[in-house]
Computed example of a mutant assay.
Amino acid sequence: MPPRLRISSLGHQIPRCQYELQIVRSASTAAAPVFTPAASIEQMTRSPVPVSRSPPTQLPSHRNPEYRRSQLLRSYTSLLRTSPLIVLFQHNNLKSMEWAAIRRELANALKKVDDKIATEGRTAPAIAPYIKIQTIQTSIFEVALRIVEYFKPTDAALASGQPPRAVDPVTQTSAELPAVSGSKDDPALTHDLSRTAHLAVKNTKGMHELSPLLVGPVAILSIPIVSPEHMKAALSILTPKEAGFPTPSRKANPDYHDPIVQNGLRKINLLAARVDNQVFDINQTKWVGSIEGGMDGLRSQLVTALQSMSSSVATTLEGAGKSLYFTMESRRSVLEEEEKGPTGDKSESS
Rank of each mutant, 00 (worst) to 15 (best):
P125H: 09
A126F: 13
Y130E: 15
Y130K: 15
Y130T: 15
I131V: 15
I131A: 03
I133K: 01
I133V: 13
T135R: 15
I136M: 02
T138R: 05
T138A: 13
S139Q: 14
S139E: 14
S139Y: 06
E142C: 05
E142V: 01
V143I: 13
A144Q: 01
I147V: 11
Y150M: 08
Y150F: 14
Y150E: 10
K152S: 13
K152R: 13
P153W: 04
D155I: 15
A156E: 14
A156K: 10
A156T: 10
A157M: 03
A157E: 09
L158P: 00
L158G: 02
S160N: 09
S160Y: 06
Q162A: 04
P163K: 10
P163Y: 08
P163A: 11
R165P: 00
R165V: 07
V167Y: 07
D168S: 12
V170P: 06
T171G: 05
Q172M: 07
T173M: 11
T173P: 00
T173I: 02
S174V: 02
A175M: 09
A175H: 07
A179D: 11
A179C: 11
A179I: 14
A179H: 12
V180P: 00
S181I: 08
S183R: 00
S183N: 05
K184Q: 01
K184A: 05
D185C: 00
A188H: 04
A188G: 14
T190Y: 12
R195M: 14
A197R: 07
A200Y: 05
V201K: 02
K202P: 02
